[in-house]
Design a protein around this nucleic acid. Structure first.
Lengths: 339, 339
DNA sequence: TCCTAAAATGCAATCGATTGCGCATGGAAC
DNA sequence: GTTCCATGCGCAATCGATTGCATTTTAGGA
């Protein structure tokens, strides 16, 4: 294997010009004549020249890499967001480096350090559930590197973020259940008081109250919202006789559905179900699950666009912005009662 | 925001020594005195020094980044592999850069170029379904960069790869169906003649023949193995009266299950089902799906370990190796008939 | 006290691309 | 025939860490 390493100097030597000229020619600098540019391009082609981004990165202090930190890529929500980021980033000549934290605070810090050391130009994060301390994010800000949060965000940190209107999503979901005739609607929320869950709870509550239903605390169950949690929550709710459940997560409502079916409840007639996050499996279940679609790809697009604005802006003067996208309720048979 | 950029020179200046000494001290070079090392570490801490990996990468031609290319991270199989790679890579001080191709050949080429330009030290790939030409991989080899394939591999390319024994997985799956009493077992395979699908088909066929069942071509359906394909395949198979189905994909068998249930077949008694790939949703269905577990995390570990061997080896002299992991059949209710 | 080997550190080049500034050439304007 | 300016390109420093080799310092022995 030939470890070819054609550099601009090789091109320069071949054409009897200097590396500066080659560099400028390749970047289409106006001060370089058209003929020289053509010659350089031809030579570059012939020598199979591949620009060394690392050298360029060192020189101008930019790596053209965006770091993305997510709890796990193994969920359509996050992987769609990543795809959305990639779309925008790639077309602006940026690469994306993905780190997964598996919802661990330590891994999150390690990821931040790794990205910082890799000298990424910006970091887009949905932080882990177990993150309570935000010092590592301040380190990012101190370095003057654009930081953008999505989904899970935090108002203490003065950074831009992209979120969906969790309140609205929850409101729509709950209202839909009410319109289907539900009177006793339970809600699965998260034990951790992350804003997204607080907002979903608020949306649920507001919908009830606006439709003249009373908010009954005994119908609220807090957990980690995974599958098993959903099962446990539903089991403990059975004797409360709910006729509808709105879960702040997708797995949670799946657990509820399993328990209900095992106990011979009819869905949606006995109990109607609505979840959050349009994960692939929600359309595979029987009945298919009604859920709140978060338009994850667009979240990614928006986050990447904010990043692009921030890097080009006068840095110091950039005002953090907040983008709130509207969620959409996807109605499927787990909640749609026949008239 | 202070754009602090502490370099080894800053540390050197502060301690009245040179950057060389600082560099060596930080790397625990034996020729540096213990006191100096301590002083350097203390100063580095105080000045909040962060090594610039880019500069180091330029100097020694290694970026300490491993590129990983997968069709999509949004599937437990791939995301587990990635996790497996990260485990090994991180503990060897490597970072991982993930690219998704969404099964597009063009995206795959673009990813290779992006990784090459980012000067990654190695590339681990599961190539896209639409990849038929492998020139871009030869470019990687020509550059002397370790290339490792996993899952989907190719014997033409003389590179290391990590695969599971697809033949064995399929054999076990089919044999299991036979043991459950199935006589007419259908098989869903992929239209694209990728080796993994050929091997699975072979395993299926061998199991039949070893158990005295005849291989009936009319029970083989080729498709892209997605959900809809599975549905279509099952629908067209109904009048062939199969009593068992083994699908080379997870989504395919899900489609089959849906169609069977819609037509009031009993699973597993009328038709027993087995899929491939232990995706999360396979345990959520009712009945839960029997499937072939690929030990994806270990695949990732193995791939990363091969990479580590290759980078440290005498490069030219490295002999491509092939690692074949044993799959495991996870038996769930979609195939387990009560005696 | 002097000498020498060992130990500790410094020097300077290098990795490849970028860029401010300066220099040369040529044509146009007066 | 000068002056001026636009055009086209070269020079050399720079980004930060690394490393072979040179040099200085130290310690130990004679």
């Amino acid at each position: 294997m030939k470890k070819e390493k054609t550099t601009i100097h090789d091109i320069a030597r071949k054409l009897n010009i200097t590396a500066s000229t080659v560099s400028r020619a390749l970047k289409d600098h106006p001060r370089i004549s058209v003929e020289t540019k053509k010659a350089v391009q031809k030579a570059a082609q012939k020598l199979n020249y591949q620009p060394n981004h690392i050298a360029a990165a060192l020189r101008n202090g930019r790596s053209n890499i965006i770091g993305v930190i997510v709890p796990t890529a193994d969920r359509s929500f996050f992987s769609s967001v990543i795809r959305g980021i990639e779309e925008v980033a790639n077309s602006a000549k940026y690469n994306v480096m993905i780190c997964q934290t598996y919802d661990s605070y330590e891994k999150e810090i390690a990821s931040i350090d790794a990205l910082l050391n890799a000298r990424v130009d910006g970091i887009i994060v949905s932080y882990s559930k177990s993150t309570l301390n935000f010092d590592h994010y301040n380190r990012v800000k101190e370095r003057g590197i654009p930081l953008i949060l999505f989904d899970r965000s935090n108002d203490e940190l003065e950074v831009s973020h992209v979120v969906i209107d969790d309140f609205l999503g929850a409101f729509k979901a709950t209202e839909h259940l009410i319109q289907q005739g539900c009177k006793r609607i339970a809600h699965f929320t998260n034990t951790r008081k992350i804003s997204i869950y607080k907002e979903r709870l608020r949306g649920y509550r507001d919908a009830l109250e606006q439709h003249g239903l009373t908010y009954d605390e005994s119908l609220i169950v807090a957990s980690d919202l995974q599958l098993e949690d959903g099962r446990r929550s539903m089991t403990q709710l059975l004797d409360k006789k709910p006729d509808g459940v709105f879960s702040a997560s997708a797995l949670g409502i799946l657990g509820a559905m399993q328990v209900l079916k095992e106990n011979n409840y009819k869905i949606p007639d006995d109990v109607a179900l609505v979840g959050f996050s349009n994960e692939a499996f929600t359309s595979f279940t029987e009945p298919a699950l009604t859920t709140v679609e978060q338009h994850s790809m667009r979240i990614g697009n928006a986050a990447a666009e904010i990043f692009l604005q921030e890097v080009t802006a006068d840095s110091e003067k950039f005002i953090p912005q907040k983008i709130v996208l509207k969620p959409e309720l996807i109605i499927r048979s787990s909640s749609l009662r026949k008239k």
